[in-house]
Structure formats: structure tokens, C-alpha cells
Amino acid sequence: MQNVQVFHFEDNGVIPNNPRLPVVFYTAAFKDNLERIQQVFEKHGWGNSWQGGVFDFHHYHSNTHEVLGVMSGSARLQLGGESGQNVEVAAGDVCVFPAGTGHKRLSASEDFLIVGAYPGGVEYNLKTGELGERPYVLEDILNTPLPKTDPVYGDAGPLFSAWNI
């Protein structure tokens, strides 16, 4: 397995983040198999997949976890809201965001392309930290079920230990 990092973020009053689960960042998980990222996610039960970019504003999903795999290019993302962590991502990298975790694109190469997916193919919501979102989103985040598989490794993998699955 490649290098794995975890990032914990606190609720900053705007972006709730996840009080229990960290972001799990897999460096170069698909460096030799970029064309298979979406297929592997779907094989491991992470569906409702799409290809595109990352919004240039802080946002999160309160009703599901999300995996993003970088298919091409590179970008600088801000995780966890305004006071969060800036992370460089490149082709082959994978980020798993627990429900509630903010993310935003700060910059990207022209060829930046990701694939996103959700455990069980959940239809995700889009939240931006508006005042009217609370307290509903806080309850939603805590009630989001844990995934049954790691999106990269299936029945084993770093997500299981990072999230105590």
C-alpha cells in the first residue's frame, strides 16, 4: 500500500467537518492505473460516479461520504474550511472525505480531472455552510452510515483502520 495520510478537522462554525472521522489521503494509489480509477471505485461499491473537477468554493455533503480520485493533472485543494489544510493532489491520488468535510479547489492545472463516487451509490446533497443548514446537517453527518468497503482496496485497506470500521 502507498503512503496514506489522515487529516482531522474541527467544526469551524461554518463548515461542520466530521467530529469522528478523518479525511484519508492515499498518495499515488493509482499511479500506474489511472484509467481504472472509476471502475475500481464501482467494483468496491462506491457508485453514482462522475468525472469533472472540484468546485472553487467551500462545500460538503452532509448525507454521504465521498471519494475523489485524480485521473489527470494536479490541483491544490483546501480541506476542512477556511482554517483547514491545503493539500496538493496529482494524478493517481485518492481522497476520501467523511460526511460533513469541507473541500474547495484553490488552483488546478488545465488537465485536472477527477472521478467522484459515494458508498452504495448514494445521491449526495450539496451544502455550503449557510446558517440555515444547521442543526439538520449535524444530525445528518452523525447518522451517515460507515461504508462497507475501502474504495481502493475493497474488503481491506487504510480506510478500515482510519475509520475503525
Rank of each mutant, 00 (worst) to 15 (best):
V70E: 02
K31L: 02
T149A: 14
G53A: 04
N86C: 03
M71Q: 11
T144D: 06
R76Y: 05
G80I: 01
G45L: 11
W46P: 14
H59P: 10
E88C: 03
G132N: 02
I141D: 12
Y26C: 12
V87C: 08
G45E: 10
T128N: 07
E82N: 10
T128F: 05
L142R: 12
G121C: 04
G81P: 06
A162S: 15
L79M: 07
N12D: 15
Q85P: 00
F9G: 00
S83A: 13
Q51Y: 00
N33H: 15
D150C: 14
D93H: 03
G47D: 05
N125T: 14
V87P: 05
G73C: 03
E139R: 08
Q85Y: 01
T64Q: 01
F160R: 10
H8R: 04
Q39A: 13
N18G: 00
G121L: 03
T149V: 11
K104T: 14
F9E: 00
A108E: 05
G116R: 07
H44F: 07
G69S: 03
G120I: 06
S109H: 12
A90F: 00
P98Q: 04
V89M: 06
H65Q: 08
K127L: 05
R36M: 12
L159R: 07
Q39D: 14
T149S: 14
K148Y: 07
A28V: 08
V89D: 08
L106K: 08
C95G: 05
F41V: 10
G73E: 05
G102F: 11
S107H: 06
F97T: 02
D93K: 05
R134E: 04
G102H: 13
T128Q: 03
Q78T: 14
V122F: 02
A75R: 00
Q38P: 11
A90C: 08
P151Q: 05
V122G: 03
V115S: 15
S49D: 06
E42N: 15
H58G: 09
E66Y: 03
E42L: 06
G52V: 05
V87K: 04
S109R: 11
R134Q: 08
D140C: 11
V24I: 13
F97D: 01
K43D: 15
R105D: 13
Q2R: 00
P22E: 10
H65N: 12
E88K: 10
G129Y: 02
S72D: 06
T101E: 03
R20N: 15
A117Q: 08
S83H: 15
G120R: 05
V6Y: 06
F41A: 04
G73R: 04
V96L: 08
V122Q: 11
F25M: 00
F112W: 09
F160V: 08
Y26G: 14
N17S: 08
E88P: 02
P145M: 00
K43V: 03
A29H: 09
G100Q: 04
F97S: 02
S49W: 02
M1N: 12
V115T: 15
Q78R: 14
V94R: 03
A117P: 10
P22I: 13
E123F: 10
A156P: 02
E123I: 12
H61E: 07
K127R: 10
R36K: 10
